[in-house]
């Protein structure tokens, strides 16, 4: 399955999603370098409307909003991807072991996963962050703790399904060594479901982080966080519309890209 061949078979919306995801990732990685102005210092008069000089206008202190939004995107997108990455790693590992070994190992691990799954996700995450205190690291930890069980469950279900299939039995009978069996004959079968779930989850994590920052649980004031920027300028909606709307729109764009990319991956993998 050549990657390029895959690409040409997608619809315009899915291609847009994938390109967008790539662009956003690159932009946020390079945010420190490509921001036109310093996001933290005053560079012009306050409350300027969007113009050629300041694409997103300026905020209440006179900081360039575009630079702040870019930095805010970096503070949201990259941690979100990290959360998903870590949760995938732990979840897939647990799921693989659980599904492949079966027996009492499976039973025990599944009870643990069940416990995590049953607890309402946002509730506990919010509470943990409220207690441990704000900060990117705590937020990431809280979210990873409550996201990994989903991937464990998905991996385990797929692995168990594959174990019963004739092709796995044939491989077992063939005398292939266990390491090879697990990593070449089982795990790749779980990858499609995992990838789809992970891409769609990026949007959910972005929303969760924006939500927490809106509620004041993100990083403290001078940090450019998208949700907080919207929350602080709610009252100016009718006067300086760009202040609450543009950061929220940036969040929207990130989620939309992730969702489109996820949908595209899902339809390609389903058809493949």
């Amino acid at each position: 399955m050549s990657g390029l061949g895959l690409f040409t078979r997608t619809r315009w919306a899915d291609r847009a999603g994938l390109l967008s995801v790539l662009t956003i990732t690159l932009m946020t990685l390079a945010a420190g370098v490509i921001t036109p102005f310093d996001p933290q210092s005053r560079v012009a008069a306050a409350y300027l409307a969007p113009s050629a000089a300041h694409w997103f206008g300026t905020d209440e202190i006179g900081r360039d909003l575009f630079s702040r939004v870019l930095q805010g995107a970096q503070l949201t997108w990259l941690p979100a991807v990290t959360v998903i990455g870590l949760a995938l790693f732990f979840g897939a590992a647990v799921g693989l072991v659980s599904g492949a070994l079966g027996g009492w190992v499976d039973l025990t691990l599944q009870r643990v996963v069940d416990l995590f799954l049953v607890l309402p996700p946002m509730l506990i995450a919010l509470t943990v962050v409220a207690v441990l205190g704000p900060g990117i690291v705590n937020t990431v930890i809280a979210l990873v703790i409550f996201w990994w069980p989903w991937y464990a469950r998905i991996t385990r279900d797929e692995v168990r399904r594959l174990k019963g299939r004739p092709h796995f039995e044939a491989a077992q009978l063939g005398g292939i060594d266990p390491f090879c069996l697990w990593f070449r004959y089982l795990l790749p079968g779980a990858v499609p479901a995992l990838v789809v779930a992970a891409t769609l989850d990026v949007a959910n994590v972005v929303l969760a982080m924006a939500l927490m920052s809106f509620l004041g649980l993100g990083q403290p004031a001078p940090a450019a966080e998208l949700g907080a920027m919207t929350a602080r300028s709610l009252e100016s909606l009718t006067v300086y519309w760009w202040l609450p709307i543009l950061p929220a729109a940036a969040v929207w764009l990130m989620c939309l890209s992730a969702n489109l990319a996820g949908d595209g991956l899902r339809s390609v993998l389903r058809g493949a």
């Binding site: 619809r11 315009w12 919306a13 949007a203 929303l207 924006a210 939500l211 809106f214 949700g227 919207t230 929350a231 709610l234 909606l237 009718t238 609450p244 709307i245 929220a248 729109a249 969040v251 929207w252 989620c255 939309l256 992730a258 969702n259 489109l260 949908d263």
Partner: peptide, 29 residues
Amino acid sequence: AASLRFAITAAGSAPIFLTGLLSAYLFWF
């Protein structure tokens, strides 16, 4: 209908503080 799917995805991706704001702005203000 690709546009229908796109519209639905766009609606679903919007952060709730944005949709709340916009709907308040439009239908109330």
